[in-house]
């Protein structure tokens, strides 16, 4: 059992590092993005990777409330992506 939990700890650290590097590369695309659609896509990817970070944090600390947090982040990310895309399509969010 101890080797299994040690392997799980190493996998958790690897997941944290990979998600953090992913967030940094997303920020690079957010600043470099030539079109505004790329910037919206980078923001959407940032939110989805933040859901992964929250899930891995909940696995590390063993707290159940992080799953409600990640569900809220997912809903907010989807609504904000659609609102930004609507604003770029129409110049207005609610017609």
């Amino acid at each position: 059992m101890s080797t299994a939990t040690a392997f799980l700890d190493i996998a958790l650290i690897v997941a944290f590092v990979a998600l953090a590097i992913g967030q940094l590369l997303c920020v690079v695309r957010l600043f470099r993005g030539p079109t505004s659609g790329d910037r919206v896509l980078a923001l959407d990817t940032l939110v989805i990777n933040a859901i992964g970070l929250v899930v891995v944090l909940g696995m590390t600390q063993g707290v159940k409330v992080y799953f409600e947090v990640s569900l809220l982040v997912a809903m907010l990310g989807f609504v904000s992506t659609v609102a930004l895309a609507r604003f770029m399509l129409r110049g207005d969010i609610i017609e």
Binding site: M1, A11, A15, I21, G22, G52
Partner: peptide
């Protein structure tokens, strides 16, 4: 023990997929 190993392997695969997706975005 089997579930813990499977969870670790799923974590590694998931983080690799996330990283590959972001590299593709860049």
């Amino acid at each position: 023990i089997v579930a813990t190993y499977a969870a670790a392997v799923c974590l590694l695969i998931g983080s690799a997929f996330v990283l590959i997706g972001v590299i593709g975005l860049l």
